[in-house]
């Protein structure tokens, strides 16, 4: 009997040393992660579109506390049309979260007591089960907390992943989290948050009154609305984003879907830089960039001449008939060297 015990202890020790061996060889590739010592803690500044939290100036990793509430509420989807949105933080898209590569994110998701349904969150920036969804399924009135290390820099979509997932997303449950690279991002003059989503209602586009979600249309991928920032004319006219000529503007672009891929385009400006799919790869001089459902893109452009820039999904029926339009109002002096309208002689 004793012998068996000793034998098994030996076997365990051998096994442990083997495992340790595996570990030490494996850690070399992830040693950069271990180096990031977490210093201090701070609460994340969260913003509603089209606003973006300020760039991160920290040169070290920290513990970032994120508190996000799930709110189910009736809001306007068009001037005389209402819709019951399910939101992260009370608006669509959800709050913009900004952290730094190496940060330890301490995330609390609270489902407000007035909610009808349970919700959770899957952040595409998370390396772990369900992107956090498994750890955060919360019934109304409950909250859930988990921590993750922001290992990969980039712009990531987050969304609700409670079944039926498509329906939760179709009701507006998505947003963006930016994980800034350690070296920071290049300095620009203005940053904005623009997120596309498709919506399916019983009534037609802009039919008045409170409109319900239409699951048949969602299954057929036939939306009544394709919107930037959750509402027809959310950022047009008086609510247009504001910038000046000569400024470098960065757009954090996301697409919540649930179904459509965006052909993201700004009429009258070339993207000087595109962080393809929100990652490290930079493409230059791009006219239209693809933003897949559940994906993102970062675009930068130097504004050359004054006027109204129209942001569209270049699958243009979505813009002209389903609401996919946002605007940047560019003020400043004319720049005839770049653009000059020639008066025809009569």
């Amino acid at each position: 009997m004793k012998l068996t015990v000793i034998k098994s202890v030996l076997a365990l020790a051998l096994l442990a040393s083997l495992v340790a061996g595996c570990d030490s060889s494996a850690t070399t590739s992830t040693s950069s992660v271990a180096i990031d010592e977490i210093k201090g803690e701070e609460t994340a500044v969260l913003t509603d579109a089209p606003n973006v939290p300020p760039p991160i100036t920290r040169k070290h990793a920290t513990k970032v506390i994120v508190n996000l509430d799930v709110v189910e509420k009736v809001m306007k989807i068009a001037d005389s049309t209402e819709y019951t949105f399910w939101t992260f933080g009370g608006s669509v898209p959800g709050k913009f979260i900004r952290v730094r590569e190496g940060d330890l994110v301490d995330f609390t998701l609270k489902n407000l007591p007035d909610s009808k349904l349970p919700h959770n969150i899957d952040l595409h920036a998370v390396n772990g089960p369900g992107g956090g969804a498994e750890a955060t399924l919360v019934a109304p009135g409950q909250s859930a907390r988990f921590q993750f290390k922001a290992l990969n820099p980039g712009l990531y979509v987050y969304h609700c992943a409670t079944g039926p997932v498509g329906m939760h997303i179709a009701n507006g449950m998505y947003g963006l989290i930016m994980v800034e690279p350690k070296e920071g991002m290049s300095k620009v003059d203005k940053e904005f948050y623009v997120m596309q989503g498709d919506f399916y209602t019983k009534g037609k586009y802009e039919a008045p009154g409170l409109q319900e979600f239409d699951q048949d249309k969602a299954i057929q991928e036939n939306p009544d609305y394709v919107l930037f920032n959750g509402r027809v004319r959310a950022n047009t006219g008086a609510n247009a984003m504001q910038a000046k000529t000569g400024e470098n503007v960065r757009l954090f672009v996301g697409n919540g879907g649930p179904n459509l891929t965006s052909s993201f385009h700004v009429i009258g400006e070339v993207f000087d830089k595109v962080y393809v799919e929100g990652g490290d790869l930079i493409n230059e001089n791009v006219q239209t960039t693809v933003v897949p459902a559940g994906g993102s893109s970062i675009v930068e452009m130097k504004l050359q001449v004054p006027g109204m820039l129209n942001i569209v999904d270049h699958a243009l029926y979505r813009t002209f008939h389903k609401g996919a339009l946002a605007q940047i109002k560019v003020s400043g002096d004319e720049n005839p060297e770049v653009f000059n309208k020639i008066k025809t002689q009569k």
């Binding site: 007591p113 109304p140 009135g141 409950q142 409670t162 079944g163």
Partner: peptide, 14 residues
Amino acid sequence: SYRGSLKGNYCIPN
């Protein structure tokens, strides 16, 4: 999914 989010001691307004 609602049932799946519950635990036996949860008290919920709906």
